[in-house]
Design a protein around this nucleic acid. Structure first.
Lengths: 151, 151
DNA sequence: TGTAGAATATAGCCTTGGCTTTAATTTGGT
DNA sequence: ACCAAATTAAAGCCAAGGCTATATTCTACA
């Protein structure tokens, strides 16, 4: 009976292993907001030439003060710069983070679509998923897309 | 010049569209913690016959008081029940959420592995990704796995 | 050139989800 | 049956990320 139970009930991962997995997820979540902001700011700078707090707030679906507070955090973390009553700009580090985030975002959307997820759902789900795709997974995603297009 | 720019710089999604996407991601994140807890509690109940706060804490990589606080939130939301100094159990709603979460978790891991992500990375990344996979994506994932196994 | 309206900033509040410290209870071994 | 160790609970702190309400500053137009 013990044996049969062990065969049909796969054992749980060890507590430390499981704790490490959850820890990574929490860590990814902690920087998700920063990534969302710099990614959006980079897009706004590219397309409109400026990134105003009010546009950032509108596109993120949050109130202006919330956006301003987060932008202050970006400044504190050395990702963005801004003068009072002027638009927001990205530092070197901010641009680097934005570029990585944008590239990863594109790959995630493409993989979802390649798997058969409809485009708008792919965009929507990617917004949350992208922050949890590790570099290892990202490389696997890129390989998958190449082999998918080639084959 | 405007035309050529429009051709090479894809326009951003409309502010409301983008806000809706971010809003969904925030909503998913809000229930992620609940899902993690009920999923883990269900696993502990299945394998060990009981779910003690200290084991929950150890496996989530969190202090005991933090786990207890979250368990109290589960109770408040009608997902779990617990008597003082006794283990934690799931309500009907808790079990339903756990079953959905576990099923989705498995599918996400399988898809990642099918795409070429190494097993441990798949498990690790899935911990964060799963909460952002919508029902529509989940169905697409299942279809992808079937066609992948069949072909 | 004033001034109204838009944008921005500030202040203060709330909940969540971490933490540590301290107290209470249970459990297991002698 | 008791005591030490483990577990659980409770209290209080903190930062993040939402919000509203209230200044403040720009800006654009009459």
């Amino acid at each position: 009976m013990t044996i049969s139970k062990l065969q049909v009930e796969p054992a749980l991962p060890s507590p430390p292993t499981q704790a490490q997995r959850f820890g990574k997820a929490r860590e990814a979540q902690a920087i998700a907001l920063l990534e969302d902001y710099v990614e959006l700011i980079a897009d706004l700078l590219t397309v409109h030439g400026e990134a105003r707090p009010i546009d950032i707030a509108r596109r993120l679906g949050v109130s202006h003060p919330t956006a301003v507070k987060s932008i202050n955090r970006l400044k504190r973390e050395g990702l963005a710069t801004a003068q009072p009553y002027r638009g927001v700009f990205l530092t070197e580090a901010g641009h680097a983070m934005a570029n990585r985030a944008r590239a990863r975002h594109r790959v995630v959307v493409q993989v979802l679509e390649a798997i058969g997820v409809p485009p708008e759902t792919a965009e929507s789900d990617a917004e949350g998923i992208e922050h949890h795709v590790s570099d290892i997974s990202l490389r696997a995603f890129a390989r998958f897309l190449r082999s998918n297009n080639a084959g």
